[in-house]
Design a protein around this nucleic acid. Structure first.
Lengths: 124, 124, 124, 124
DNA sequence: GTGGTCTAGACCACC
DNA sequence: GTGGTCTAGACCACA
């Protein structure tokens, strides 16, 4: 399964985002071993160096850690994961509000619309 | 200013989206004449055929209409514009909820977070 | 002038150290433009990618900053430079005390020896 | 445990330094028999000829002496050891002052910094 | 096998 | 020209 990438951001950054989401969503659990750099790169359809860079950057953020001979692992510090998750949630919310503002919706109108949508769902 | 495009969708579709947004946000007003296909294509940095296809598709949706001799115009039917605007709002909202769900947020939690964000803004 | 490198540390790290010293010692002044990545790499006798990595890491530390089209520059924030300088001084001092301890000198004896050395210099 | 070597000096010289330190620090005591050249070379991960040269040079300095049939021994002359120890201390001190000078510290400032460091240690 | 580093060579956007 | 990114291929230490 080769991953898909956009033109508007470096591939390594998109790889980072993707792995980030796998972690905060629980698809990769705390302490779990990631595929080897080479294998993961193959899976993503990118060069091993690109994957290496992405993982190194993620390591800097504390979301994963590496052990020289045995691989990369998801952090066991759930606080770090929670923090990143909150950050991403913030980011999506901001982007959403921004998108809606571009359509001419005020924040209040946006919230109102979201509520109506959720109520409709309940009825279904 | 050349527009920026992704890899994950045909260019013409992205052009459509962009013009759509210009219309529903009011950057292009009802009845306003669009630049010529060639000019508009140049401005966007796409092939005139691509721009042509985008405009034709938009015409099918009723958001613009063309007059053989004088060019393309934004519809004067504000109901159509409002409808498209609502559709886009729906789309952004769905995508937002989807993104948040991928982070493990329920719809209720997402709404809660949005509220807190708006309250904080008021305080500022 | 090709630089000389040891085996006991990655080249990019040694390049970082070297540039660091050039900055904190004043050989490169605040705001000064560094040679281009390619030129600098040639001067150091390393691959441009290696120099790029070294400069990127230094940028992360705030000691230099980059402008996409015009090059890398030494930070103008003298506080950052002073801080790095203090850090390096600390490091050298610790290493010195450690080396002397391996020779069987206590810290007090080391300090005593240093003093005698400085006094002898004055006499010269 | 294979020893680690730099690129910036001949291996035999680095071996010398290391054995020197073992002697002056007391890890090898006066009169103690060294491992055989072959064994010692294996331990250090160097060619026996290299180890031979290092020991011969150390012998010239009087720090060790050899007996044709029974091997190499640490000198029993403590004055020689003390002298070498002083020499090494001198060398480390000079290198320290040089490093600090490269950071822009005068000798006085360096001494001052060392003092403050030792005082802090006492408090701990 | 693993991560990590290094080199070589290419392409891109920006100005 | 500039920095930045990407790929390909190689080597190393570690276990």
């Amino acid at each position: 399964m080769r991953w898909e990438f956009h033109n508007d951001a470096p591939i390594y950054a998109q790889v980072m985002e993707r792995v980030e989401r796998m972690i905060v969503s629980g698809a990769l659990t705390p302490g779990e071993r990631l595929p080897s750099v080479r294998t993961f790169a193959l899976e993503a359809g990118v060069n091993p160096n690109t994957m290496q860079k992405a993982l190194t950057e993620l390591e800097r953020g504390g979301l994963i850690y590496s052990q020289r001979t045995s691989g990369h692992f998801v952090t066991e510090d759930q606080a770090v994961i929670a923090s990143v998750r909150a950050e991403l949630a913030e980011l999506h919310t901001d982007r959403f509000l921004q998108d809606m503002r571009e359509l001419g919706f005020t924040s209040a109108q946006t919230a109102e619309l979201l509520h109506r949508k959720l109520e409709n769902k309940e009825e279904e």
